[in-house]
Design a protein around this nucleic acid. Structure first.
Lengths: 187, 187
DNA sequence: AGCATAAATAATAA
DNA sequence: TTATTATTTATGCT
């Protein structure tokens, strides 16, 4: 991998940790542990990466996407970057947990969750609609935005529902292909 | 659409605080608490509902699908049913956690996970490949389709991977140039 | 009682 | 970053 080092010498931490793995004056093991704990704390509060990211964007600026949280949890970032983000997450999570103790409403408010954010009801497509959808899928597995909109309107379903249908359909197709190529005996 | 609301939904539970909620001699609150803890313990071990279900099917008989685990965690089952399943899950989880303490390999074995079941590729280029790629890039930042195909075959990577490499490389170059020249056209 | 798959979430590519 | 894919969860159905 590209070394890319030497941009800055942070010698702020004078404390020498004995057996921990240190890189550029950063304690990797400590960060690793924190990341793991952070994920668990997040799940304990029933929060998604998206929610954490959005909430942080409000208080800390617009640099916290779902991807960013994901990458931190998996430590798919540079040590320097992790070191920078860690205290922010630490502080935020502390606050969130405190709010949680004082009642869920406080947490919801803090995170900016909708109070009655229920899962969407599972739509069931009519056979007629499915037939048309499948026909379209055979023609083109990746319809454009405009095509999806038209199709949704034509069939009388929400646009998003149609979009998701194509996502899942592509998924199913891929899985089928994968299974077939595995050479498993047909049932 | 006919909303058909109010289908067998209990009205608000103005349950009295302090005493446990009992139904048919079953302590609902206890089960509720267990279900929540179970989910957290499952996540701590990094297991999916599917994995738990499959593992249980081996040790406890074929009555534990992913759906079943899901429904237990959400308590979307009858109290009687929950009461019946609870000790099974309790026992299994205990065992799983013990194995986990003795090393991940033990857990994997217990759960029946594929040792090498990892998510997906993430192409990383060998230094040799990178050297060749960079040489080609210096010669021509916009290789034709045929050239990309040849190069991909030569290096032993997927064509698409190579194509994208050039995209990203051009991007990097552009960013560098832009940074150097400071004022640039917004393309 | 659990399969099929819609919806939601996490991870990765562009 | 944002868009999209891969994975997991949840639920309509019989």
């Amino acid at each position: 991998l590209s070394p890319c080092s030497g941009s800055g010498h942070d010698s702020d931490k004078g404390s020498d940790a004995g057996s921990d793995q240190m890189v550029d004056g950063i304690n990797l093991d400590e960060i690793k542990e924190f990341a793991k704990a952070f994920k668990l704390r997040r799940l304990s509060l029933g929060l998604t990466q998206t929610q954490v990211g959005q909430a942080l964007s409000v208080t800390e600026g617009p640099a916290y996407s779902q991807s960013a949280i994901c990458r931190f949890e998996k430590l798919d970032i540079t040590p320097k970057s992790a070191q920078k983000i860690k205290p922010v997450l630490e502080r935020w999570m502390k606050e969130a947990e405190d709010r949680y103790k004082n009642g869920h409403q406080n947490l919801n408010e803090f995170v900016g969750m909708e109070p009655s954010k229920k899962r969407k009801r599972r739509t069931s497509f009519t056979p007629q609609a499915l037939e048309i959808l499948n026909t379209q899928f055979e023609r083109n597995t990746h319809p454009s935005g405009a095509e999806i909109t038209t199709l949704a309107h034509q069939l009388g379903y929400e646009r998003e529902v149609i979009r998701i249908w194509f996502c899942n359909k592509r998924q199913a197709l891929k899985n089928t292909v994968r299974m077939m190529s595995k050479g498993s005996s047909p049932i």
